[in-house]
Nucleic acid binder design. Structure first.
Length: 471
RNA sequence: GGCGCCAUAGCCAAGUGGUAAGGCGUGGGACUGCAAAUCCUUGAUCCCCGGUUCAAAUCCGGGUGGCGCCUCCA
């Protein structure tokens, strides 16, 4: 398959370091708050990538970190540890907060059919690995100790800005208001590997190290966890675009300096979910969680459908109008599938057509994860002149990658329709309405229909008679 | 200011040189007493201006606009 690689800014054919096996790393959540649906968009797209790689025959080993060590919440000097902030807000310990939001993250993920990665690792459980890497970097002279902290020396690199064509001199450091340069740094782009001299006095979690009691810098976490579980050669590293710089840039700097060779081949960056005003982010305050979506009556999988209809490298604008659009499409699609008869089974005479349809689907996914195009394969299947069972078979196959619970939902829909015989009260009313209609008493007939609707029961008049189902 | 991504119908979008897939919505029709559901049907000078070419949404140049990053964010 081909994937757009942020390093080369081109679509590249995926060729893993070890044939047949993809080692994949995902930047996980910082567990100080609920993930919002913008965060989750990234995980949905990464999940689809993983599923597709497996679908086309790769073994995938996927690792995700859980950031349970604090990061600064605003800037270097006035900032407060995020985890601590969460803890203060809720009057719980940092570890309690971390556990609570980690659980919440995976619960939300599950609702969105995001498969839990093979290995999920807490940042706080890998301190030894970070220390080993930092130690190695100091020995190789890529890092220095200054003012109580260990810094990575970016001047030792041939090319630091791997994702952009920029000269260090062109880059304004600390352009944002309130960001103050750290006088300990030899170069403006140097970054901290290990803090002992905390600028925030109340950093809650600290560990012993050769450089004193302290805690790791943000970037070392992902390098360490990836190295620990995936070894020296990583195939695909995923994350949101906003982490491209500095986080991913710094990961590469550290990891490759430490290892002495190229580390990760492909970098996949998922673009943001925007509101009509801009990025949905924790700092802008405008964010929506999965629970809130459910409270508003949305099926989380309709949100997944919404994301898959777009492309991961495109800004997607969230609005209720757009979500409702996706909800309609999703429900209609399920309705059509529910009307197919039989069990998923590929019929011999459908094989040729099925192969073509399957090929189209895989081609779309192979083409830089073109989920929008792949989704249209679902409609192609429904329209194709093949046996219903073959359609169900194909839909089921596609859904292994899309994970929209298509057949499951369709089955639920069918069962809903079958519950009608079990409610004599409703049956009686339908009969009464039938009589009213016969007598052309439209007022009474409509009243019965409206009353039932108020109870969440929808009547359907068909040539064979009236059926009903719950809304 | 520097760097990057993007720009196709009301909305979500596919399409990388040969004359605009698909989906949702809307309008019309069939069915219905009326609705709902379902089925049929309906829509685009591809952000602008130049250029290359027999031929450009697609390539090149120049604009405009939106979004992001520049040490908190996926």
């Amino acid at each position: 398959m081909k994937l757009y690689n942020s390093l080369s800014r081109k679509r590249e054919k995926i060729e893993p370091h070890e044939p047949g096996v993809i080692r994949m790393y995902t930047c996980g959540p910082t567990v100080y708050h609920y993930a919002h649906i913008g965060n989750l968009r990234s995980y949905i797209m990464e999940d689809v990538l993983e599923r597709h790689l497996r679908f086309i025959g790769y073994d995938v080993i996927r690792v995700m970190n859980i950031t349970d060590v604090g990061h600064l919440s605003s800037d270097a000097d006035t900032g407060e540890d995020k985890m601590l902030e969460g803890a203060k807000r809720e009057q719980k310990s940092v570890m309690e907060i971390a556990r609570y939001y980690t659980d919440a993250f995976f619960q939300d993920s599950e609702k969105l059919n995001i498969k839990k990665p093979d290995i999920v690792e807490n940042a706080t459980d890998c301190i030894d690995t970070y220390i080993e890497i930092i130690d190695g970097l100091i020995k190789k002279d890529y890092a220095y100790f200054e003012g109580g902290n260990v810094y990575f020396d970016t001047s030792k690199l041939d090319k630091y800005f791997v994702f952009q064509d920029i000269e260090a001199d062109d880059l304004d450091v600390a352009v944002r208001e309130g960001v103050v340069e750290d006088p300990n740094k030899k170069n403006p782009n140097d970054f901290v590997l290990w803090f002992t001299k905390s600028k925030f006095e109340d950093q809650a979690l600290k560990w012993d190290s050769p450089w004193g009691v302290g805690y790791p810098g943000w970037h070392i976490e992902c390098s360490g966890i990836s190295l620990k579980h995936l070894g020296e050669y990583l195939d695909i590293h995923c994350g949101g675009v906003d982490n491209m710089f500095p986080h991913h840039t710094n990961e590469i700097a550290q990891s490759e300096s430490y290892l002495g060779h190229k580390w990760c081949k492909y970098w996949m960056h998922i673009h943001h979910l925007n509101t009509t005003d801009g990025k949905m982010s924790k700092s802008s305050g405008e964010l929506l969680t999965v629970s809130q979506l459910i409270e508003k009556g949305y099926d989380p999988l309709a949100y997944r459908f919404f994301c898959l209809q777009s492309h991961y490298r495109k800004n997607l604008v969230f609005s209720y109008e757009n979500l409702d659009n996706a909800v309609q499409a999703y429900e209609k699609l399920i309705g059509r599938i529910a009307r197919l008869e039989g069990e998923p089974k590929l019929h011999k005479e459908s094989e040729e057509k099925a192969e073509r349809l399957m090929g189209e689907f895989i081609d779309a996914m192979n083409s830089d994860l073109n989920t929008a195009l792949a989704m249209s394969s679902l409609y192609d299947v429904l329209k194709e002149d093949i046996h219903d069972e073959s359609k169900l078979y194909l839909l089921n196959e596609f859904d292994k990658v899309l994970a929209l619970d298509l057949l499951k939902k369709a089955e639920e829909e069918r069962q809903k329709a079958e519950t009608q015989e079990e409610n004599p009260e409703v049956e009686a009313l339908i009969l009464k309405r039938h009589d009213a209609k016969k007598n052309k008493d439209w007022a009474l007939a409509d009243k019965i229909r409206d009353n039932l609707k108020a109870k969440g029961i929808i009547l359907k008049d068909t040539p064979e008679g009236t059926t009903w189902e719950y809304e």
